[in-house]
């Protein structure tokens, strides 16, 4: 399958993400320049982490005006797979492809560290290779990762099973301590109602090779690839 990694000015995990899908998972992958109008026939679009437009004004706020957004939006509305990591998640929120907003971390500091996240939904193209309750050690690196949503919408998220990842202890329990950035209901990642757009604050591309301390993030890329192989690839008659 083919991944397209969008490059905004200020993206800084674009190369890391491309490296992982290309070199670690041996998939086709290309950068998509934000000023173009070409998704280059990608099967999955990734908004990588970084500081698009310096995160000035508000994290992710300016990226939504980039020319390529028009094509990505259409792609997503037609059921195409879109993964937003960190700043990419923030952009998806600004685009309205996912509900809610990000506040500053509860300690008002940038946080870069490995955290544990629990998979709460494996019925998605991004987690189907995982198990419910499985705990992954994946790094976060953000200032604005304190997810917020109003109460009614939060109920909807639960009802529709849209919460995919939650910050947890190593044993899967939720606690105030494990909820490092103060997110509502410890939400670390969520999916849209249609189940094709996922946003997550942790960086799976930083946890896909054992030499970097953890390869728990592999399950996300493996899921996408498996999903595509099984579901999307035209089956021989």
């Amino acid at each position: 399958m083919k991944f397209g990694v969008v490059v905004f000015p200020g993206s800084n995990c674009d190369s890391d993400t491309l490296y992982v899908v290309k070199e670690v998972f041996n998939q086709e992958a290309e950068f998509l320049w934000h000023k173009d109008h070409d998704l280059k026939n990608s099967d999955c679009i990734i908004f990588p982490g970084g500081f698009s437009y310096g995160d000035y004004l508000r994290s992710g706020a300016i990226a939504r005006f980039s020319p390529l957004i028009k094509e990505v939006r259409e792609f997503a509305l037609n059921g195409g797979l879109v993964l937003g990591i960190c700043n990419g998640f923030q952009i998806l929120l600004e685009l309205g492809l996912l509900p809610g907003a990000m506040l500053r971390n509860k300690n008002l500091k940038f946080l870069c560290q490995h955290v544990n996240i629990r998979i709460d939904n494996t019925d998605t193209p991004f987690t189907l290779a995982g198990n419910i309750g499985q705990v992954l050690s994946i790094p976060i690196a953000h200032f604005d990762g304190n997810y917020y949503i109003d109460n009614n919408s939060l109920k909807d998220l639960h009802k529709q099973n849209q919460i995919v990842f939650r910050y947890s202890e190593q044993n899967g329990n939720l606690s105030k301590k494990s909820n490092v950035n103060g997110s509502i209901n410890s939400i670390a990642g969520l999916i849209n109602k249609n189940g094709n757009v996922l946003g997550m604050m942790p960086h799976p591309e930083r946890a896909s090779e054992a030499i970097l301390g953890s390869d728990d993030g592999r399950v996300i890329f493996e899921s996408i690839i498996q999903y595509f192989d099984k579901v999307k690839k035209p089956q021989p008659c």
């Binding site: 490296y19 500091k109 301390g213």
Partner: peptide, 27 residues
């Protein structure tokens, strides 16, 4: 150290606190 992004570029093998910073060179 946790206020610094010490992992971006995915080359950092030893995190801050080790005797020396250790970086792989990809491939």
């Amino acid at each position: 150290f946790r206020q610094y992004d010490h992992m971006v570029q995915t080359n950092t093998v030893f995190f801050p606190g080790a005797d020396a910073a250790l970086l792989r060179i990809k491939n």
